[in-house]
């Protein structure tokens, strides 16, 4: 299993085997929404804030 550090609290965040760049994961420690920027090596960033025109 891949893991990367949360950019907010620094704790390790486990990523699923089939993780995709662009996917959102939650930090289990601090709850921050994190965007997967890279998978090899794994890299996380704080996910963008919800924008008004987001949706389906």
């Amino acid at each position: 299993m891949t893991a990367a550090n949360c950019v907010t609290c620094g704790d390790s965040v486990a990523l699923p085997e089939d993780v995709e760049v662009g996917e959102i994961v939650d930090c289990g420690s601090c709850g921050t929404e994190l965007e997967v920027l890279g998978v090899d090596p794994a890299e996380l960033a704080e996910a963008p804030e919800l924008a008004e025109d987001w949706g389906e």
Binding site: D18, E20, V21, G22, E23, I24, E35, A47
Partner: peptide
């Protein structure tokens, strides 16, 4: 084209 891979996109990708 995407800016976020939601579970929906992941289902399609898979």
């Amino acid at each position: 084209l995407y800016s976020r891979i939601r579970p929906d996109e992941k289902l399609l990708l898979t």
